[in-house]
Simulated assay, not measured.
Amino acid sequence: MTTITGLFIPCDGELPIEEVTLEGGDYRLIKGLIGGLFQVVEVPNHPASFFVDEEGMLKTLPVNNRGTLLLWELCFDMHVNLLILLGNVLVLGKPDAVGNTTSAPQDLIDEVLSR
């Protein structure tokens, strides 16, 4: 399996955003980080994907302000600012040609961690 990297953005704003490494296709780890079943929010015209709790609204999870603001920042010209992310967020890359999850863009990881 291929090792991929991404950004883990905890919902709790007191906890740091972390760079994480996982085996590509290890959906159990993604479920563990997110806290349950997940869905993917694709970013138009950007190579990032946001993994969020699929049942965030049903579980009444709190808003992930940092994850939401990052999504809005990447989609500023697309008027996607109606979408609000709930719970923990994992940012990875878009799937490759055969559907395997890829790493988040390293420049995005570096930029977010430098804030």
Rank of each mutant, 00 (worst) to 15 (best):
G35N: 03
T68K: 11
N81T: 10
T3L: 13
T102A: 01
A97T: 05
H79K: 14
V89F: 05
P62R: 02
L113R: 15
L61M: 13
N65S: 07
M1K: 06
N65G: 09
L61T: 11
L69A: 14
L29N: 03
L85G: 05
V40I: 13
P47C: 12
L22F: 02
L29M: 10
G35M: 00
I9H: 00
L108M: 15
V89W: 03
C11D: 03
K59V: 06
A48M: 07
T60D: 14
D26R: 05
E19I: 00
G87Y: 08
G36E: 00
M57C: 13
G67R: 01
L108F: 07
E42L: 13
V41H: 12
E55P: 07
V40Q: 03
F76K: 12
G56E: 15
C75S: 05
T60I: 13
P47L: 14
L69F: 09
F50Q: 06
G36V: 04
G99Y: 00
L58R: 15
H79L: 14
K94Q: 12
E73T: 15
L86Q: 00
G67A: 09
V52M: 15
G32F: 03
Y27E: 01
L92M: 15
P47T: 12
D53R: 05
G6V: 03
G13D: 14
I30M: 06
F50N: 10
V40N: 11
L108K: 06
V91P: 02
N65Y: 03
D96E: 08
L22C: 04
D110K: 01
V20N: 07
L58T: 14
D96S: 11
C75I: 09
D77S: 07
S114V: 01
R66I: 01
I17F: 06
V40M: 15
L85C: 08
I17D: 04
G25Q: 04
L113Y: 07
T102K: 09
E73F: 15
M78H: 11
R66Q: 11
E54V: 15
T3V: 14
P105I: 09
N88W: 05
M78P: 02
T101E: 02
L58F: 12
M1V: 05
Y27G: 06
K31C: 02
L22V: 03
I9M: 06
L71W: 10
L58C: 13
K59A: 12
G24Y: 04
I109H: 11
G32M: 00
P16N: 01
F51T: 00
T3Y: 10
N45R: 01
L15G: 03
L71N: 13
E23M: 10
F8W: 09
D107P: 00
A48D: 06
V40L: 12
I4H: 02
D26P: 09
G25W: 07
L83C: 15
T5G: 08
L86S: 08
N45P: 04
D77T: 14
L74C: 08
I4G: 11
M57A: 14
G13P: 12
N81I: 04
T101G: 10
C75L: 06
D53C: 11
T5M: 04
N64Q: 07
R115H: 02
K59Q: 04
H79E: 15
I84Y: 13
S103M: 12
L61H: 12
L92T: 11
V52A: 11
G13N: 15
A97Y: 09
L83K: 15
Y27L: 10
